[in-house]
Amino acid sequence: MKRLMFMLSVLLLFSSQNVFADEEISHNTFDYGDPVFLETVNMLSMEEHGTHDYASCSVKQVYYQEVAGMFQQGMTKDEIIDYYLKNQGVQALNAPPKEGFNLTLWALPFTALFLFSFFIFLFIKKWKRNAAKGLSTGSANLDEMEEELYASLIDKERKKYL
């Protein structure tokens, strides 16, 4: 009886190891270098672990295994992205989608920079025009009497120091 129990436990032990070995084989058969897989995984933020090294980051390894499992189940790239968007929201993506309010947020800084540059250009152009008008009209409108007055003041000051 003891032998039978021992044999059954050994048999159960070996059969369970084969199950785990089969999982390892199926896990290792997925091509992690597939361009569609890499594109999908690179779109995910992975809870801010997306830039970490795969070998040392357990969170990134879990995401890779989840996405690989989804591909093996027959899900497409868009279905996987939708799954993460439903579960985690827009924070699941590295970059928000360029539609709706997010599109406004993408375009607003460039529009503001363009408008600011345009108004600075107009201000400088107007400033130059007014400066050029001020110099030409200011010297042309002096009367002869003012010129004589300035000339006499200059002569008087010059005679003081000679």
Rank of each mutant, 00 (worst) to 15 (best):
M1Q: 09
K2E: 12
K2D: 12
R3P: 06
M5Q: 14
M5T: 11
L12S: 14
S16Q: 15
Q17H: 07
N18S: 06
V19Q: 10
V19T: 10
F20K: 09
E23D: 12
I25G: 00
S26T: 12
S26Q: 13
N28E: 08
F30H: 12
D31K: 03
D31N: 15
D31H: 06
Y32L: 14
G33N: 15
V36M: 10
F37V: 02
L38C: 04
E39G: 13
T40Y: 06
V41Q: 08
N42M: 04
N42A: 11
M43S: 15
L44P: 06
S45I: 00
S45M: 05
H52S: 14
D53E: 13
D53T: 10
D53Q: 08
A55D: 13
S58G: 00
K60P: 01
K60R: 15
Q61C: 04
V62D: 14
Y63V: 01
Y64F: 07
Q65W: 00
E66A: 09
G69T: 09
G69Y: 01
G69L: 04
M70F: 13
Q72T: 12
Q73F: 04
Q73V: 01
Q73R: 13
M75A: 09
K77M: 02
K77T: 07
K77P: 03
K77C: 03
K77I: 00
D78N: 11
E79S: 06
E79G: 11
I80M: 02
I80C: 04
I81S: 07
D82E: 13
D82W: 00
D82G: 06
Y83K: 10
N87D: 07
V90A: 07
Q91D: 13
L93A: 02
A95G: 01
A95V: 12
P97F: 02
K98G: 04
E99G: 03
G100Y: 02
G100Q: 02
G100C: 03
N102A: 09
L103P: 02
L103S: 08
W106C: 03
A107S: 14
P109G: 07
T111K: 08
F114W: 09
L115Q: 10
F116W: 04
F119C: 10
I120S: 08
I120K: 06
F121G: 12
F121H: 11
F123Q: 06
K125M: 01
K125F: 07
K126L: 08
K126M: 05
R129L: 00
R129A: 05
R129S: 03
A132H: 11
A132V: 05
K133G: 00
L135H: 03
S136R: 15
T137C: 01
T137F: 02
N141Y: 07
L142T: 07
A151N: 12
S152E: 12
S152Y: 10
L153Y: 11
L153F: 13
L153K: 13
I154L: 11
D155R: 14
D155H: 08
E157Q: 11
E157P: 01
L162C: 03
L162W: 09
